[in-house]
Computed example of a mutant assay.
Amino acid sequence: MGELRTERLVLRRWRESDLEPWAAMNADPEVREHLGEVMTREQSDASVAAFEAEFDERGFGWCAVEVAATGEFVGFAGLDPVDEEMPFTGVEIGWRLARSSWGHGYATEAARATLTFGFETLKLPEILAITTATNVRSQAVMRRLGMTLTDKFDDPTAPEGPLRPSVLYRIQPT
């Protein structure tokens, strides 16, 4: 997976310069609202190291997202195999953006490019999306992408509490 470009965005491998804004995103309670506790700088940096190692291993993964016109890092998007603990298997699409980038359509735009890559290049038969039952913003993106709600379940990887009830959306290539 090389660089993916859209009209306004570039999805690319991670750079050292992404670590600071990524850590700031992960320290923002509003960004982490549906993901769990805020992350320390060390945890945030370790997540990028893991993303890069997984990318090297399988050729795709979580990409840094930047605004093409400015080069500003605004978050991540990509594909990742579903956690082994989940009650289903497959490859999931995901995204996370800095709060300052919300409301610009970037999540949908990055996700569309990611779906195209997943279906046309990886030849995936289906792509999944998972989020908490209360994450209405991400679910709206899933619906805009043409994804269909297929299941409600308790996420076994989430701690007991409000982050455990989750939803599963699916899409197949057209």
Rank of each mutant, 00 (worst) to 15 (best):
H34W: 14
R99Y: 02
S17Y: 06
E16A: 14
A129I: 05
P159M: 02
L149P: 05
D28V: 11
D80M: 12
G36E: 02
F117E: 08
H34Y: 15
T6Q: 02
T40M: 00
D155P: 10
R15Q: 12
R143E: 14
F73K: 00
Q172Y: 04
S101H: 06
A98P: 10
D45A: 15
V31I: 09
T132Y: 01
L35T: 09
E92L: 03
E109R: 05
L9I: 08
H104I: 06
V91I: 13
T134H: 14
L11G: 03
L122P: 13
M86Q: 14
L115N: 06
L115Q: 06
L145H: 09
K123W: 02
V10Q: 00
A129G: 15
Y169I: 10
V48G: 05
F60W: 12
F153W: 12
L145S: 10
Q43D: 00
E57D: 13
A69P: 08
T121R: 15
S138M: 08
A69D: 10
F73W: 06
G161L: 00
F153E: 07
R112S: 07
R8F: 04
M147Q: 11
T174R: 15
T150V: 15
E16N: 09
S101G: 11
D83M: 03
G71F: 00
I127G: 00
G146K: 08
A98E: 13
W14L: 05
G75S: 02
M1V: 05
T70V: 04
A49M: 09
G103W: 04
G75D: 01
E52M: 15
V10C: 06
T157M: 06
A24H: 13
Q139E: 11
D18R: 07
R170K: 13
A158T: 04
M25T: 12
E84F: 02
R96V: 09
G161R: 05
R32Y: 01
T114M: 12
S17Q: 14
R5I: 05
L79I: 02
V167R: 04
T89R: 11
N26G: 03
P159W: 02
E72Y: 04
V136C: 01
R15E: 11
D83W: 02
R99K: 13
K152D: 12
T108F: 04
A50K: 12
G78S: 04
V167S: 04
